[in-house]
Each structure stands twice: as structure tokens, then as C-alpha cells.
Design a protein around this nucleic acid. Sequence first.
DNA 1: ACTAAGTCTTACGTCAATGTCCAAGTTACT
DNA 2: AGTAACTTGGACATTGACGTAAGACTTAGT
Lengths: 203, 203
Amino acid sequence: MTTVSELQSGPPPSPRRRRADALRSITAILDAATETLNRRSEATIEDIAKAAGISRQTVYAHFPSREALLQALMERVTEQVVTAIDAADLDTGPADAALVRLLETGWVALGTNPFLLHLTLPPIDPEQERERHEPILARLERLVVRGQEQDEIDPQLPVAWVLSATLALGHAAGEEVRAGRMTPTEAVQVLRTSIPRLVRPGR
Amino acid sequence: MTTVSELQSGPPPSPRRRRADALRSITAILDAATETLNRRSEATIEDIAKAAGISRQTVYAHFPSREALLQALMERVTEQVVTAIDAADLDTGPADAALVRLLETGWVALGTNPFLLHLTLPPIDPEQERERHEPILARLERLVVRGQEQDEIDPQLPVAWVLSATLALGHAAGEEVRAGRMTPTEAVQVLRTSIPRLVRPGR
DNA sequence: ACTAAGTCTTACGTCAATGTCCAAGTTACT
DNA sequence: AGTAACTTGGACATTGACGTAAGACTTAGT
């Protein structure tokens, strides 16, 4: 059939008729794939289908191959993250608080997609990868640089390290929640104290 | 043939003759497996064999199955980490400095085995898992608790979080090095400033 | 130099996942 | 109510990894 890739593009390039149940299936698949692959990155198409409550064939009806599924998945996740970032309104207030806000909305709350970070399929060209990560990185870097200029973030620290470290802490907090060692509230709490400590300039 | 599992046990239970090249092969396999699985956790036995510079069959000559290989791998890694921990001499000096020392020897230097953390094979019983992690966790917890008692580590922070966060930062630094965005020296440098900031009690 | 241990090549059987096809049944739109 | 879109179940070819086996060859130890 038709690949879903045309879906998230703005104006419909081809006047394709799409029924409601089809759309439901598609999002069910993507949700299930996110959930399942987060636990086992080697999960089968069948696993995903089962988790989505549909048959394996239906998956193939919308995504021509496993590759295509993962592709679409990455696109959607990226899109969600970008949305979350914009919602966090990074340009307002102290930069370190903005970092925390970012983690709250984007990572801890919305599901913490660690597989996204470590799912580098072989048949992905670096150009595409860059292109996908660029909008995210650009926003984050801008935030960090702003924070350093306003002396809310230690200018001594490399920008890349501030980002890595922050995301690592966010990921770690998400893990704690997922493992049941912390409640989401505690996780947010601990991030609120840890991130500023990490990035604030020494007095 | 005989499984390698008898190897790291203390006194040889069966007086097995082992030739030098066999031992060489075994460590070559284990090293290659560590290296390869760190990049792709779904790596084939053939991949590992190729990386080790031997044939696939030789792998099977020493490890009856993929499962057994991973098993042995986990054991060896655990052993190495424990050794590294003991070498870091955690009971001496300020606790936060000890944490940094730990990362330097155990993670950044010795190869940063992230796959160890995320490689939870289905057919692993939790009891065995606990048993494996116990010696490591015990040492680390003891360190953190000591630090909190001596007021070198913020007593407000949950012990589990101090550990997670520290390891997360160590892992992040290792990633930076692996990705070529930092030199090992810079990584150590940045850890030396970041860890204390993170865990030191607020003035 | 002899011998046992170890390795290599080739080959084979099994199994699970991918991807394809089709026919029959459901479900959404108008 | 009618039709096109969608889903489903079964069936099938293909591929790749696992695990096993046997014979020829090479290497280490004494």
C-alpha cells in the first residue's frame, strides 16, 4: 500500500483517501513499537503487532519493511521531542531551570525513549541522522550558550558536555522511575537540585 | 569440549590439560565479544569470531552456546569491575574524590562497557543477577554512606541516586570519548569537576 | 620427534523472522 | 445500502543465525 511517510508531511502531496481505522492502526503500531523496542531493541514485528493488538500483516500494510517502520518511528519521536522542547519555552527564565523544565516535559514525563539514542541502524546515512538531530541540538546549544553568557551556566564547561551530562542525568532519573526505585515526583525533585549544581558557575 | 566456566573458579576441580593457544583463543573471544557487543548487542557469533581472528567453530569449541558465552562474559566483566573497584581504594580519602577515581579506573579507562548494563538476557534468573551485582553495589553503597556520614556527600540525596547519577556521568563521559568529541584527558578533567559539584553538600 | 590438543574447512539440519500473496470477512464513509 | 478501504488468517519462499559433526591440518608440550 502507501507508506505512512507521506503522512507527517505538511500539505498532502497525493490526495490519498485514508480511513479512520487505518490511522488508528498506524498510531497503535507506532506506540506499540516505541513501548516494545524500549524494552528489547531486537523485538520482532510480530511482537510489535501483538502489542498493538493487530495482526502482523496489518503492519506490513502500512510499513513496507521493518526498516521503514523504524524510520517512521524515528521521525515521529524527533517530532515529539521538538514539540516538547518548544513547549518548554527554553528562552525564558534562568537557563538551568530551563534545562530542568526540558527534562521534565521531554524525558521523564513523556516516556523516556532511551532506545532512540542507541538505535543506530546500520542502513542510516549520517546525513539523514544529522538532519534529524540538528533541530534538537540547535535549540539546546542555543540555550546553553545563552546560559553561559548570562552567567547562569559555568562558561568553563564545554557546551557538549553540559548537554551530555544533563541528558544523562535525565535518562538516569527516568531509569530510576522505570525500575520502581523512585516516584516521578522524586525524580523531578532530584533533577531540580542536581542539574543546577552540575552546571552553575562555582561561586 | 570443556566449558571455560571452570577456568575462573579457584582450584581446578578437574585436572584438565589446557594448551597455551587454547587460552589465547578464549581471551581473544572474550575480548572480541566485549568489543563487538558494545557496538551491536545483537552481534553474531560469527561477528565475534571474525573480530577475534578465529573461526566460528573454535568459538563453539570453548563455549557450547551463545548463552554460555554471554554468561562467561558477564562473569569476567564483573570480576574485572570488582578488581578495578578494589584497586581504586575507595575507603581512603574524600568520598567524592573516590567516586571520580572509581570512574577513571573502572569506566573511562578500562573501556566503558555500557552493554553490560543493558544486556539483560531473558534466560537469566534474577537471583544470579543479584548475586553478580551484589559485590559491586555493596562496595559502592558503602562508599556513599561513608561520604554522607563524613559530610562529603549531601545526606539529602538518596544513595541510589548518587550512584545512578555518578555512573550516568561516567558513562556520558565515556561516550564523549568514544564519539571523538573529547580526549580521555578532557573526560577525566570534566568528571573531576562535575562529580563533586553534583554530590557535595550545599554550603 | 612423537602425540595429544587445538583449529580450520566444509557440510548439514533446524529454527525463527522477514517479506509476499491471496481470499474471505469487517468496517468506515457517502 | 453500497462500495472501497481495511483487516485478518493461512500459506509460502527466503534468509540468516544457531548448533552439530567429521576429517584434514597445525601447533604446543614433553
